[in-house]
């Protein structure tokens, strides 16, 4: 092997790394433009507010939008107390020990489990054994478990970022632990916690494998949480895989991308202010 002059190597490495990084950004932009270029022209008021007809060949995506909203809302509402509660327990109520280690192990493991496994579990446990059928409730429960790790991690980080002095002041004024948490820690950690909630919403909106097995693929308007309903991601998947309508597939994908983009922007704004405030 030829031994490179360190300065040549430096230039070469720098060049390669810049190229690779810019290429990754280019690919991301390309994918987004690729979808939006054809999808944006499909989106109009009718597309967003009409019920799909003929399996989605005609009409809009109102039912999948409602499906997405209801499954996501339900999942977040169910996951919220557990996720945030666990975060408070880990950050405020306990020192590192065997139990916290087990909780952390389980949280990390849940984060790594693929969504299809959540789907299998939700299908056997919620859909069949608890007999909730393919329903918004089954889907919401399954997604709630899936987003727990995200919620716990982000909330715990936010709680730990609250300066110690806040707590000390509260204690020195005679506040109990619970009062301290409520009055001193929560107001200061709330941005970080909300950021975690928003990221969880993003995961729910983007999920397909777990909801298709638990919320089903029904296209009729759900009347209660016990009815089956497909989400936008599932609808998009069905349109593509069954070759139903490429035009509407592009349209649905564009709506999904815009939604995810919006969610990311909001989450970033929160976290940036949160960091700025913390300093």
């Amino acid at each position: 092997m030829i031994k490179l002059n360190p300065h040549t190597a430096e230039k070469l490495a720098k060049g390669v790394i810049w190229t690779v990084a810019l290429m990754v950004i280019a690919v991301l932009i390309f994918i987004i433009v690729f979808i939006l270029y054809r999808g944006l022209s499909v989106i109009n008021w009718e597309f967003l507010t009409r019920i799909p007809r003929r399996s989605g060949r005609e009409g809009g995506i109102l039912t999948p939008i409602i499906g997405t909203l209801s499954v996501t809302l339900l999942a977040i509402l169910i996951a919220m107390p557990f996720g945030i509660g666990t975060a408070f327990y880990l950050a405020e109520y306990t020192k590192d020990g065997i139990l916290t280690r087990i909780i952390r192990f389980c949280t990390e493991s849940l984060a790594g489990i693929p969504s299809i496994i959540y789907g299998l579990f939700g299908f056997i446990f919620f859909v069949q054994i608890l007999d909730l059928k393919w329903s918004i409730l089954s889907g919401g429960l399954t997604l709630a478990i899936m987003v727990l790790p995200t919620l716990i991690r982000t909330s715990e980080e936010a709680i730990r970022a609250v300066p110690k002095t806040y707590r000390e002041v509260s204690f020195s004024l005679g506040g109990t632990k619970w009062q301290t948490i409520r009055k001193a820690v929560v107001p200061s950690a709330i941005r970080g916690i909300v950021n975690g909630l928003i990221l969880s919403v993003g995961r729910c909106v983007a999920e397909t494998a777990a909801v298709i097995l638990t919320a089903g693929v029904s296209l009729s308007m759900p009347k209660s949480v016990l009815d089956s309903s497909r989400t936008m991601a599932v609808h998009f998947y069905q349109l593509v895989i069954e070759g139903i309508s490429m035009t509407n597939a592009y349209g649905t994908a564009a709506v999904l991308i815009i939604l995810v983009f919006f969610i990311n922007v909001v989450a970033n704004m929160l976290i940036n202010r949160f960091v700025a405030k913390g300093r």
Binding site: G85, L120, I124, I129, K177
Partner: peptide
Amino acid sequence: KEKLSGRIFFILALSTISALVLITIFIFVE
């Protein structure tokens, strides 16, 4: 209130453990 809040947080913190245990059990049993 103090005791209750501690208990509640403790119970909520068991959620990930029970989730992982349930998932493991049901996938294997099936």
